[in-house]
């Protein structure tokens, strides 16, 4: 048998990994053979490193089977990477749903609030940071005109977030940071504040005043609630 071997074609694996790669499948034609035989070269084909196994003759059918196994392994690995990858990425990149359940905090019995004399009152709000729940002290300014007409102001200046105070002599709210001045209704009298004092949602039940703690964006004319 004449021993001339001719390489007809190479397969996609050597294209990807290089001709020396062990997966290289080289089609070699033995002259004198009626059937075409194919080598599966497992290690270095070029040169003399071929072991006995590497030079084992494998029919074309067998090579096709191996090719299919490689395709199958690759596809199923892709599937595994896909069904695991999506949850792993989504769990750290995706948005976590938050339950929006605003709970009013009890502030004070309304009959204890003096008429037309703003008072700063403390209360506690329930705070949830991921899975950690805690209570946070807050305060608010309460202005009572009558038992049915009560306003609650957020204690934060709408200019740049400082805490303002009531000046009982001048009957004005004055922010110490940049001298924004507001009247008893929260209207801007002077200073850089872009809007009046922010009111907090409130409700009166059984003669008790309840307030919902909210924070608003500062430095802009619109009153926009900041979400957690």
């Amino acid at each position: 048998m004449q021993s001339v071997v001719q390489l007809e074609n190479c397969y996609s694996d050597p294209c990807t990994f290089g001709e020396e790669f062990r997966f290289a499948k080289i089609k070699i034609v033995y002259s004198g053979e009626s059937d075409t035989l194919v080598f599966a070269a497992n290690t270095i084909v070029k040169g003399t490193n071929m072991t006995e196994r590497n030079t084992e003759n494998i029919s074309k059918k067998e090579l096709s089977r191996r090719g299919f196994f490689i395709l199958l392994s690759g596809t199923l690995s892709g599937f595994i990477a896909f069904v695991l990858g999506i949850p792993l990425i989504a769990s750290i990149l995706g948005t976590v749903n938050k339950v929006k359940n605003k709970i009013f905090s009890r502030l004070t019995p309304i009959n204890t609030v003096p008429i037309l004399n703003p008072v700063n009152l403390n209360f506690v709000t329930a705070k949830t940071d991921a899975f950690i729940k805690s209570v946070e002290p807050q305060d608010a300014w309460v202005i009572k005109r009558s038992n049915f007409d009560i306003t609650v102001f957020s204690p934060i200046c709408p200019h740049l977030g400082c805490r303002y105070a009531w000046n009982s002599k001048q009957k004005l709210f004055i922010c110490p940071c940049h001298n924004s001045v507001f009247d008893i209704n929260g209207k801007v009298i002077s200073g850089p504040a872009p809007r009046g004092l922010d009111t907090l949602p409130k409700k009166i039940q059984h003669n008790e005043l309840y307030v919902l703690w909210e924070r608003f964006k500062v430095g802009i004319p619109q009153k926009i609630v900041m979400e957690d």
Binding site: Q2, S3, V4, V5, Q6, L7, E8, N9, C10, S12, P14, C15, T16, F17, G18, E19, E20, F21, I26, I28, Y30, V45, K46
Partner: peptide, 23 residues
């Protein structure tokens, strides 16, 4: 037999050489 020639033309173009070098 001895391998006579390597056919790297069809689907193994310059890319092969490059990848092979990197490898």
């Amino acid at each position: 037999g001895e391998i006579q020639s390597w056919n790297t033309s069809k689907n193994c173009d310059g890319r092969l050489e490059m990848v092979s070098k990197i490898w």
